[in-house]
């Protein structure tokens, strides 16, 4: 049975033509100074826009709620701050306050004892060396 469409037979000449056409297309695409790339060279290179999440897109914020600070953000920020801040015992204010408290306590105890002692007569007067004895309040016997 004969086919309805008769296949064309390739000749050596058509192969040469196809090869030349393929070579020309390759040159046009590959060479930068080709007319196809000339338009690109005259324009300023476009800045490559990096990916940024929607919440940080200040130009076109779409979801306002994403821009608002959340409690988690505050917690993270405070934790970062606390991690950077020195320990309480490394601060001079801590030692200043502690020193003031200690000095104040010692002064209060000493002052209280002195006040109590003076309210209770203070020191007994020294015993006269010509006396045969000294006794009573504040005396050893």
């Amino acid at each position: 049975m004969r086919p309805m469409v008769q296949l064309r037979k390739r000749t050596p000449g058509s192969g040469v033509v196809l090869s030349v056409l393929a070579a020309v297309m390759l040159v046009v695409v590959a060479v930068p100074s080709s007319p196809a790339r000339a338009a690109d060279d005259t324009e300023a290179p476009r800045a490559v826009k990096e990916y940024s999440p929607q919440a940080e897109d200040q130009d076109r914020p779409r979801d306002k709620s994403l821009l608002e600070k959340t409690p988690a953000d505050a917690a993270v920020a405070s934790k970062a701050q606390s991690a950077e801040a020195p320990a309480f015992y490394q601060r001079w204010q801590f030692w200043a306050i502690t020193g003031a408290i200690v000095v104040g306590a010692v002064a209060a105890i000493w002052g209280g004892e002195t006040l109590y002692h003076s309210l209770h007569g203070g020191d007994v007067r020294p015993c006269n060396s010509s006396f045969i004895a000294c006794a009573g309040q504040g005396e050893p016997q």
Binding site: C127, N128, S130, F131, I132, C134, A135, G136, Q137
Partner: peptide, 8 residues
């Protein structure tokens, strides 16, 4: 001699 007695 003399002895001294101290009191409040």
């Amino acid at each position: 001699g003399t002895f001294e007695f101290a009191t409040f």
